[in-house]
């Protein structure tokens, strides 16, 4: 099983653990991640304004790269996944955007949304299978109580992301069960961490992160996992509660359970 892999900027800098453990775990599970060449920053936010074209080009280049390899494009960072998946949907469904992007890029053949964008978690669920993952676990995280924090970008808008039930997702909980731990379900697992507003006003993410973590702790979680570097940052750096749980990327626990850490 080989995927074209798009790591994204943050995974090369602040979120190296997210990337490193994803790679070793994939290898152990028989999945090859072939990093695409010359990828550029996805832009981190999906441009909602319909007349934004230039900000969508780098995502299309990545998509076209995977198309040329004849592979699915695998993403890991929630923001990259969100942007690339939605831009791909635009290329598939919006005639105006598709025409303008292709006019601009002048590719050998027009890109019209052919590439399938897959998140690492979707790969675990649909290609590897959580049952097979469970069987591959060498070091089950027995006794660990883990709250999944989904954030916004993987789930919404559900019609485009088609990732999971946006209000009652199960994929991370199923992942937690597969690595031998106990999932703790929280109400705020799909409520925003405060996002990029952190750059301007830390008070907003602080309020959000405290609320999210307090709930996780009150429901007995010792660990909170995420797939998003910005969520991890807000929860870890911008929260001020005392009894903070461990906050880490899901790939760290995956590697730990597979005996690779």
């Amino acid at each position: 099983m080989t995927y074209s892999y798009y790591p994204g900027c943050t995974l090369k800098t602040k979120a190296k653990e997210l990337d490193r453990y994803a790679r070793v775990s994939a290898e152990a599970l028989g999945v090859t991640l072939a990093e695409i060449e010359d990828w550029q920053c996805c832009g981190a936010v999906y441009p909602l304004a319909l007349d934004e074209i230039a900000t969508k080009l780098s995502a299309v280049r990545a998509l076209d790269s995977a198309k040329k390899e004849g592979r699915e494009l695998l993403t890991l960072c929630s923001a990259c996944h969100h942007v690339i998946k939605r831009v791909n949907n635009d290329m598939l469904t919006n005639d105006d955007i598709r025409m303008k992007v292709n006019n601009y890029l002048k590719l050998d053949t027009d890109y019209v949304g052919e590439t399938n964008v897959v998140h690492y978690l979707e790969m675990l669920r649909d290609a590897v299978g959580f049952d097979n993952l469970k069987a591959a676990v060498k070091n089950p995280l027995k006794g660990r109580k883990i709250a999944a924090y989904y954030g916004c970008l993987l789930l919404r808008p559900a019609k485009v992301m088609q990732f999971d039930n946006p209000e009652n997702p199960t994929i991370l909980e199923d992942f937690i069960k597969a690595i031998g731990a106990t999932p703790v379900i929280t109400g705020y697992r799909n409520e925003c961490c405060g996002g990029y507003v952190a750059l301007e006003d830390k008070a907003i993410p602080q309020k959000r992160a405290n609320m999210i973590l307090e709930e996780a702790v009150s429901k007995g979680a010792d660990t909170v996992i995420t797939a998003c570097p910005l969520c991890l940052y807000n929860l870890e750096t911008n929260s001020t509660i005392d009894n903070k749980p461990t906050i880490c990327y899901f790939t760290e626990l995956l590697a730990e359970a597979l005996g690779l850490k």
Binding site: T10, K14, G43, V45, G195, L199, L230, T237
Partner: peptide, 9 residues
């Protein structure tokens, strides 16, 4: 700790 993602966003 601030990730690139936050700055770009």
């Amino acid at each position: 700790n601030m990730p690139q993602q936050a700055i770009v966003s």
